[in-house]
Design a protein around this nucleic acid. Structure first.
Lengths: 203, 203
DNA sequence: GGTTGACTTTACCGAACGGTCAACTAGAAT
DNA sequence: ATTCTAGTTGACCGTTCGGTAAAGTCAACC
């Protein structure tokens, strides 16, 4: 990676960390720069605006989420319903680790930015919308697998169920963040199987 | 109401409207005052800080939510499952109306503030937590009714189910806001009955 | 009629905001 | 050796931020 790209990456990482642990509005360009050891002028050499940087942060966030949680959790070495169980466990462990590190449950970085910025920055809103779509496809895929495996009714609407899963996941993380308690994730997220309607639930 | 209390109320209403349609951070004390036709000095006569005002806005929000949506929707003139259907319809209609009025789906005013402020202002976080508890009790109540009416298994954990309902509702509103589409509410919220596990679903 | 206290007005504070700009540096290409 | 350019630097812009303070207004009460 060239020197310039390294600087650029430091800005992205700095912004991601600061915005996730606090909020978009609470973190200024100056602070992002200080944290990344970059001068403000350089910031505007790489990014047109704070908003444009945020769109790239969101893209990075999506890639990390898919590679470090979604792909390993939904790997096809288990039955679809077991994959969901693994996903729930990963999500729980992740929030536990976040709380240890920051002292706060931080929830979903995309959901956080979505609620804060959707009415204020159309570019950011659109970006989060497509991010959610990417995650949505992952859910559709595993739900289609469940159909094939006979764990799900053949007439189930997998695209609708995928949306339902996404919504419920975001909701659980919102409550967990509000209560500042990762145990909420462990307690509530398993109900997603009732939502999906898996035929033979392991108990 | 005395003149002072009227001024105070105008500030609360102004803050509620502005913060709901945008965000906590994006709305300044000055703008709240301009909108309420009150001088900034008066603001600090009535409220110790922007944060303290917000706590009172949240309290007002809770009361409005309970009186104008929760109480009428969950009134005991219908069976518990029918009450949920009515609640879903109210929630949908409300977001439709909001979108007509503001051009944006604004979701849940409490959820919005919760995600934005939970890590930055402990007083606000705590307040939202107790707000959610009040709503939670409403759900517990109707779920207990459902048990008595035989619409719900006698061994169902109503306190856990109430939390699940709350989480799912918040999640659906988050997605609806992100997509800026109130139809999401109409499409996804009915799945709450699968989550609860009503015995005899009307279809 | 003078005093009190709630409320209003206005000017002000230092700090931070997002963003701009021109000058500068250093390494690669010609 | 010189030119070009990606990247860096730090000063600067006007505006807004949350919050303070002091003077002024007005109605109620003694």
């Amino acid at each position: 990676m060239s020197k310039g790209q390294e600087t650029r990456q430091r800005l992205l990482d700095s912004a991601q960390q600061l915005m996730y642990s606090r909020s978009y509005s609470d973190v200024g360009v100056q602070e992002i720069c200080n944290n990344a050891k970059v001068q403000k002028g350089s910031f505007y050499h790489f990014f047109a605006s704070k908003s444009a940087l945020t769109v790239e942060v969101l893209e990075q966030l999506k890639m990390q989420m898919i590679e470090s949680i979604l792909m390993p959790a939904f790997a096809k070495d288990l039955t679809p319903s077991r994959r969901f169980e693994r996903f729930i466990d990963y999500a729980y462990q992740h929030q536990v680790q976040i709380k240890e590190e920051y002292g706060y449950v931080l929830g979903c970085p995309m959901g956080n930015i979505a609620l804060e910025m959707s009415t204020q920055d159309e570019t950011i809103r659109k970006k989060v919308e497509t991010l959610f779509e990417s995650i949505f496809y992952v859910f559709v895929d595993v739900l289609d697998d469940a159909k094939i495996a006979g764990e799900l009714d053949a007439d189930a609407d997998t695209t609708e169920l995928a949306q339902v899963c996404l919504a419920y996941g975001e909701g659980v993380l919102l409550i967990a963040k509000t209560k500042n308690d990762p145990e909420v994730v462990k307690q509530l997220l398993p109900y997603v199987s009732k939502l999906i309607g898996f035929k033979c639930l392991p108990d």
